[in-house]
Nucleic acid binder design. Structure first.
Lengths: 344, 344
DNA sequence: CTGTTAGCGCATTCAA
DNA sequence: TTGAATGCGCTAACAG
């Protein structure tokens, strides 16, 4: 009742030493088939599962990955976590998760320390890049020689990371609008602390500059990713830029708010105002009207991150030092009604 | 460089035995203030953090909670996870997370075994209740005497759980529609495997029965929680029930699809068709029109679950056996334009 | 092929 | 108030 079965119990029951049981557990070749069979049988009967705790402690190598994330209330981060878990599971890792609830107040110090205390083999840092977090992390991690993969951060050659090409996404969206013949193209950017927000905006800037459209500052408003902030930002934009023809909104939730603002303002979309979003959340195809948006495979971001961390770990164990790797995934444009001049 | 600081290093450096360091770590009273100070100083200097692995192994008591979840792509489950993490963190627990990606194929057996192998202190089972999972779990858990809190399952006296009163939610929504004067009130239910879906539907049934409205079967369609399934279900409903006056949709995403279907069908909401959703996702206030919906505090569900698990664990350690507890949270109705006959 | 010895990092006896 | 010995469950290195 409630007793934990240990390797000892198995050994006793099978009439062998614990070492032999350990060998069977780890699929070592140096066990006679007969003995192996018997031990396996006992293991099954007793429902024995080796303690990962003890195993990690003795073996000195943990099979747990640490994940530090934030903004799980948003589509991207939560999907990415799913991708991380999926891949981690495939590769035989367990996941210890820490969330940063208010990314601004803490630098994730306690989260990191907790994970280290739990002897995680490596870390996936999936937190919006804000302030000096990165520098601080480097100091803390370098001396521990703990492999880390960063998610969605600014390109940097000494860092292993996976990111979407947010800049390209911004360009895709803006280019599309230009091609549709729009000129006065505004932007509702995300929170400026987020790298994603800044990068999407820079794509927009680049294309407008190429097209020779100036006075970008007046065409810009910012939100906090929420629909309500998108609504507010769009109201401001409509009030300040009477001849606004189109707007690139940095995520779909804000785009939803923007659509409502346009409706309230009496500007029909897409006839009198074109809108393009970012994310392609499943709901965006059902907005009024269906939203043209930039799709990013956030699940894949998570998968790649784990694969990469796995590679780093393998190299680490073979005492080789793998140089920093990186993967930049490309988003694609999904065209729906909200940006098309002649609706079908 | 990369060396892990252990309790030994601290002891040597401080000129005391590891036992004394251990005492300081655990805030034992039997250490002279002077020694304590010195040890603490060294701990700080060396940046020492005790290995949770070793600590758990020796102490026999882990401070990690296991979470088995699924459907993290939906608003509810993902918010609940945030609540779980938040509370766990407050109480000093770490979280090991396993996701069931296809709830139908597996019974979560491997997830559970993994968590047990990692010696988690207790488990939060946040998976949609499907088939015989529960029974199977009971067998597996009872013999391990491992405390578990279930989320969103059918009331059952021998089980510790936290749930929303989904039935009441269904009733609130339907009652509201009845009060508005609607009679032919349809439903777009969630996947029938989900307890939440069945319970919300039963609330709808109850109110309609009270109101003496019959032929419920023809008023029902089902979806899979997605906006696209809501769209399809609504199309069917509109085709099959020409005199449909209102519809209760079991979640907001499906309601979004339903709204679009109504628009395509040429039925204006709320003038010619009232719609009520469920969840109150942040976006729902920005639907076209803004959605009347049933709000549930899913974050609180997660918090409560952890508190409850914590209580169970405390009792467990004091070798007392706490009887099964349960908490049922009440949802509230949020009235917006989609259900109001005279729009403001 | 199999068992013995030692030790992972810490906490829990029991003495001193 | 402090320390030495022992063990948690498992694996690594060495014997036999």
């Amino acid at each position: 009742m409630g007793k934990i079965v240990t390797i000892k119990d198995v050994a006793r029951e099978a009439g062998v030493s614990i070492m032999t049981v350990s060998r069977v557990l780890n699929n070592r070749p140096d066990v006679s088939p007969k003995t192996r069979k018997r031990v396996q049988k006992i293991i099954g009967e007793l429902g024995f599962a080796p303690s990962e705790l003890a195993r990690n402690l003795s073996h000195g190598r943990s099979s747990t990955l640490g994940v530090v994330s934030s903004g799980l209330e948003f589509y991207g981060p939560s999907r990415t976590l799913v991708g991380i878990e999926k891949k981690a599971n495939e590769l035989g890792y367990s996941l210890m998760v820490r969330l940063l609830h208010s990314p601004l107040e803490s630098r994730g110090e306690s989260a990191l320390n907790d994970l280290i205390a739990h002897q995680v083999a490596g870390i996936i840092w999936a937190v919006a890049e804000i302030g000096d977090q990165r520098e601080w992390l480097y100091g803390h991690l370098a001396e521990r020689a703990l492999p880390v993969v960063f998610l969605n951060i600014k390109n940097r050659s000494d860092t292993t990371f996976v990111a979407m090409d947010n800049r390209m996404g911004g360009k895709l969206a803006t280019e599309h609008l230009i091609k549709q013949g729009y000129q006065r193209i505004g932007i509702i950017a995300g929170p400026q602390e987020w790298w994603e927000a800044r990068d999407r905006e820079s794509g927009w800037r680049e294309i407008l500059a190429e097209a020779g459209i100036g006075d970008l500052q007046s065409l810009k408003e910012s939100g906090d990713w929420s629909a309500s902030s998108g609504y507010q930002a769009m109201m401001n934009l409509l009030a300040n830029v009477p001849d606004l023809e189109a707007v690139f909104v940095s995520n779909d939730s804000m785009a939803l708010g923007a659509l409502q603002a346009a409706a309230v303002y009496g500007r029909s979309v897409p006839q009198e105002l074109a809108v393009v979003g970012f994310d392609d959340i499943p709901e965006s195809a059902y907005f009024t009207p269906p939203l043209t948006t930039v799709r990013q495979d956030v699940l894949e971001v998570g998968c790649q991150a784990v694969s990469m961390l796995n590679q780093q770990l393998q190299a680490h164990y073979n005492s080789g030092h793998l140089p920093a790797q990186s993967a930049i995934l490309e988003p694609t444009l999904i065209v729906r009604q909200s940006s098309i001049r002649e609706p079908t």
